[in-house]
């Protein structure tokens, strides 16, 4: 008798649980005034979403400030955020390898996912650089301003569909920032095309799309990450290359000062400068009002200095 009642009890509880679960996902009430909850995977996506959505949406960025976007893994708190969200914006092209698995585990059936690199002409990944492997494609599309414009357009379309009442605002915002992207592209073109040197030395091979768009050539210094020990033959090779091509600048990422880059700089008399791949910004940079456009403009200044005679 006891066993039977236990079984019945268990069954009842299981049913209750199931009922609870299915009730947890109610039909979305679209008439509420609260802003759309938008989650962006990392900084440029958050910045673009913020620019297009304005006050109508509340953007949260998963990869927090100052973190390395490539090594990031979601925590349970991030998953909870996504369960509550309306829209999830990713870059795609292998930048968020964790997203596929994560999305399958979510029970949020109303979540719309936008892959902003969809439809872009993606570059092959030359080599898996500095330990982290992106897969077959180079994900750093946002560093080409015209690709960034396309990504903004994808975000705008998604927002329009989710929130038709404000679609005019999204369209206006998009047009304003799309113009800025074109302006930026124009600036890059005009500044870089007359310069004689075309080779840039970078610590992180993130500038494929940028180089492709403006006829530059990136040479990645492997092992320039501060974690690993470099091998001297490779360092000698880089020094020879720099002397031969009269390269004056070694670009490294924000936050990653490297003893090896400095050693090479000492040998060649070159300078080390920052070329920001915009994967994440620090709190100080945000407080100073930096955004995609200001950093891209700063990058252009650095490139101009490095490549002019």
């Amino acid at each position: 008798m006891k066993i039977k009642s236990l079984i019945v009890l268990t069954l009842c509880m299981a049913m209750l649980c199931l009922a609870g679960c299915s009730m947890k996902a109610p039909e979305k009430v679209s008439t509420d005034d609260s802003p759309l909850k938008v989650i962006a995977s990392f900084y440029p996506m958050a910045d673009f979403a913020d620019k297009i959505g304005g006050d109508n949406i509340a953007v949260q960025c998963l990869v927090s400030l100052g973190m390395e976007a490539h090594d990031w893994e979601p925590t349970t708190a991030d998953i909870a955020l996504l369960e509550e969200a309306d829209l999830f914006i990713i870059n795609g092209a292998g930048m968020e390898p964790w997203a596929t698995d994560l999305l399958q585990t979510l029970s949020n059936k109303n979540l719309v996912v936008v892959n902003t690199s969809e439809g872009l002409d993606l570059l092959e990944n030359d080599e898996s650089h500095d330990g982290h492997d992106h897969g077959d494609q180079d994900p750093h599309v946002w560093l080409n301003p015209l690709y960034a414009k396309q990504q903004m357009s994808m975000i705008m379309e998604a927002l329009k569909e989710l929130d038709a009442t404000n679609s005019k605002t999204y369209q206006d915002n998009y047009e304003k920032w799309a113009n800025k992207c074109e302006e930026l592209d124009q600036n890059y073109r005009e500044t870089l095309s007359p310069l004689n040197h075309k080779d840039i030395l970078v610590s992180h091979q993130a500038f494929g799309y940028l180089c492709n768009a403006y006829g530059l050539n990136q040479i990645a210094i492997e092992g320039l990450s501060p974690e690993g020990e470099p091998n001297p033959a490779r360092m000698a090779e880089i020094i020879d290359f720099m002397n031969k091509h009269q390269t004056k600048v070694i670009f490294y990422e924000e936050n990653t000062s490297s003893k090896v880059a400095e050693a090479i700089a000492r040998d060649t008399g070159a300078k080390t400068m920052v070329l920001n791949p915009l994967e994440s910004l620090s709190q100080e940079q945000l407080d100073a009002g930096e955004d995609y456009f200001s950093i891209m403009t700063a990058n252009l200044k650095g490139l101009q200095e490095a490549l002019s005679d």
Binding site: G66, M67, E68, P226, E227, G228, E229, P230, N231, P232, M235, N255, T256, S257, S258, K259, V260, E262, A263, S282
Partner: peptide
């Protein structure tokens, strides 16, 4: 430590990168 990269920079040294 907030900024992990600065920690890494001090963690490792190399005989071919001496200041």
């Amino acid at each position: 430590i907030q900024n992990a990269t600065s920690f890494n920079a001090f963690l490792f040294g190399s005989i071919v990168a001496i200041s």
